[in-house]
């Protein structure tokens, strides 16, 4: 049984149909990536998974249970964490508070403040810094740490490496692998194949609001030309 199943989902912004008949699964403990170019519909799909966008048609199942009608707060409590594009760090909160707020209603489990600070020591050094005074890399670590503190079973990462220096991307990739090794499934959104090829076992390619291809990472390598064409600008 899959951890997450999106089945035949249509999503609209007002009257504009943005996602068409999307189906996507994530298995327990797996890393899956969702790849697509600018405007392909990646963030919209992620928001539909966490409940920030409603499904006009289709179903959302978590752990085999139909959770189509649930609000984001309920989905979070079931174990889905959202690390959004642009990080969305709370500007009025300092680093420590940005993490602690995730523990207010978050699930209890293996991840606590101490472990997040061990995973990202840089955050502990900047504990009292306001959220809006961080570098891009620090913000990304904070967003990942905040998500982890809800003790998710599935972590949604929307373009976590965007705009970061290569060295910081390396750290982040290592952190993702470590998080996944603890049994947390990851759905990783990217615009290119670099990090997905390193981390993910399965890949989905999205364009024009439709899933255009999906398969094992090995199969992707066999079709690399076709897929590069789907995601290049």
């Amino acid at each position: 049984m899959s951890l997450l199943q999106m089945r035949n989902c249509d999503v609209y912004y007002g009257k504009a149909k943005t996602l068409h008949d999307i189906s996507l699964d994530v298995e327990e403990g797996e890393i899956v990536s969702l790849i697509g170019r600018n405007g392909a519909g990646k963030s919209t799909l992620i928001k539909a998974i966490i409940g920030l966008m409603g499904l006009e048609r289709g179903e959302r199942l978590f752990d085999g249970r139909d959770v189509t009608g649930l609000a984001p707060e309920a989905l979070s409590r079931l174990g889905i964490a959202f690390v959004p594009e642009n990080r969305r760090i709370f500007a009025a909160l300092n680093v420590d508070e940005n993490l602690r707020i995730a523990t207010v209603m978050g699930r209890t489990g293996a991840w606590d403040l101490r472990r997040i600070y061990r995973l990202f020591p840089r955050l502990e050094e900047r504990k009292d810094t306001p959220g809006d005074a961080l570098s891009g890399g620090e913000q990304q670590m904070l967003a990942v740490g905040r998500g982890l503190l809800t003790n998710p079973r599935l972590l949604l990462l929307d373009e976590p490496t965007e705009g970061l220096a290569p060295l910081i991307v390396q750290d982040l990739v290592a952190a993702m692998a470590a998080i996944n090794a603890e049994g947390v499934a990851i759905l990783l959104v990217e615009q290119n194949l670099k990090v997905p090829l390193k981390l993910a076992q399965r890949q989905y390619v999205i364009d024009n609001g439709r899933i255009q291809w999906h398969g094992q990472t090995g199969e992707l390598l066999e079709n690399q030309e076709k897929i590069e064409a789907l995601i290049s600008l």
Binding site: I50, E73, R88, I101, V104, G106
Partner: peptide, 24 residues
């Protein structure tokens, strides 16, 4: 206080607060 922390966060980005399990 925790209440204050949540209010400050939710005044800035209510959706994000919701995704942390908090009923806005």
């Amino acid at each position: 206080s925790r209440y204050g922390m949540v209010i400050r966060a939710a005044s800035g980005d209510p959706e994000m607060v919701q995704t942390l399990g908090i009923s806005v």
